[in-house]
Design a protein around this nucleic acid. Structure first.
Length: 351
DNA sequence: CGCCTTTGACCTGCGC
DNA sequence: GCGCAGGTCAAAGGCG
């Protein structure tokens, strides 16, 4: 589909609001927004974007590879990456990514004029969820084991990372290999939700993909868990990921044991910057470092969310004493994180 | 033949 | 307890 929906700020807000309901908000303590246009019909867009971002990364001096440092900063005032979101339930510490987007070359069709809001074309809305994150003991279960695990899931759910993407393609290529293991009709939505699992043995990462009932051109993808293996295990069909300059860069600037993390490419691309859906600045996460328009990660050791393999941990210089907070650790500064954790702990104590 | 998708059945949690 | 909805399993079939 070549047509992009022009979204006003107001529209964005609505979208975000819907997101909360769409994404089982009870399990999404950290929804933040992000919006990206993949209307190019190119299933490889992520990878393309990744390549495009290469220079961005290359210019990053941070040795911990993918971090927010790589984030481009649009020239407008909405430079908060995370802001508070009205939460449906106190249980979660939801945060909204509200960094504005910039015009995207891949979303040409988005009639950049519509992007009258300049930076609003090609938006992506992401929702971040982080909970306890008992990542590792996933999978490998007999049925009884699975059931037992499910019981625990309620209390210690996998870290989740969700986002909205404008695309015709449901299963966006993020570099990992996924096996579809289920599909379900979603209530109040004409579009089914698909369930995928990472095909790598012992990697229990899952992702759910569904289309927004409000805007069919929007694909909502929710990742759950962290990859326990380097990325990508097996390039699928295209682009030799392991030899990509990006990875080379990551490996050389960080450490030889490092590898690049895929998904966040959405977030990293200068063409798909997060859109500031809320102007609530109470939880600003990323500060503009200077007029050069780059973000500075408040926590330099942070790596990109989610996608398993925490680069900072992989680094020999990283203290092993740092508590692993999963995705949360990757995204939130320690301050906010501790707040969140306290909140979670309190919640748990109540139970 | 291996990998993947499809799809109906089953399980579980939750609200009433 | 019942019904609903979400999530998962696993057999069957397709495809390269």
């Amino acid at each position: 589909m070549a047509n992009l929906v022009t979204s006003s700020d107001h529209h964005q807000l609505e979208l975000a609001g819907n997101l909360s309901s769409i994404f089982d908000t009870s399990s999404l303590p950290f929804p933040y927004s992000y919006f990206e246009d993949h209307s190019s019909n190119n299933p490889n867009s992520f990878l393309d974007l990744l390549r495009q971002d290469h220079h961005q990364f290359a210019s990053s001096s941070n040795s911990s590879s993918f971090s927010f440092d790589a984030f481009p900063l649009p020239n407008n005032n909405n430079n908060n990456f995370f802001t508070d979101l009205p939460l449906p339930q106190a249980e979660s510490s939801e945060v909204v990514n509200t960094t504005p987007t910039s015009p995207n070359s891949t979303s040409v069709s988005s009639s950049s004029n519509e992007a009258a809001n300049d930076n609003n074309s090609g938006k992506e809305v992401t929702v971040k969820d982080q909970e306890e994150g008992d990542q590792q003991q996933e999978q490998k279960g007999t049925k009884p084991q699975l059931k037992a695990k499910k019981k625990n899931q309620k209390k210690a759910r996998e870290a989740r990372f969700a986002f909205l993407t404008k695309s015709d393609i449901d299963n966006l290529d993020d570099g990992y290999r996924w096996r579809k293991y289920g599909q379900k009709a979603v209530k109040n939505s004409p579009y089914p939700r698909s369930y995928y699992r990472c095909t790598t043995v012992a990697c229990g990462v899952k992702k759910r993909v569904e289309r927004s009932s409000d805007d069919p051109s929007i694909v909502m993808t929710t990742y759950e868990g962290q990859h326990t293996h380097p990325f990508p295990m097996t390039p699928r069909g295209h682009i030799g990921m392991l030899t990509s300059p990006i990875l080379d860069h990551g490996a050389t600037t960080a450490s030889s044991s490092s590898f690049s993390i895929p998904q966040p490419r959405y977030l990293l691309t200068q063409h798909h910057q997060p859109y500031n859906m809320y102007n609530n600045n109470s939880l600003s996460m990323i500060n503009r470092s200077s007029s050069d328009g780059t973000f500075v990660n408040p926590e330099p050791s942070s790596s990109f969310p989610g996608f398993g393999y925490d680069m900072s941990q992989a680094s020999a210089s990283t203290s092993s004493s740092i508590r692993d907070h999963g995705l949360l650790q990757d995204i939130l500064p320690s301050q906010i994180r501790s707040d969140t954790i306290n909140t979670q702990t309190n919640e748990e104590n109540k139970k």
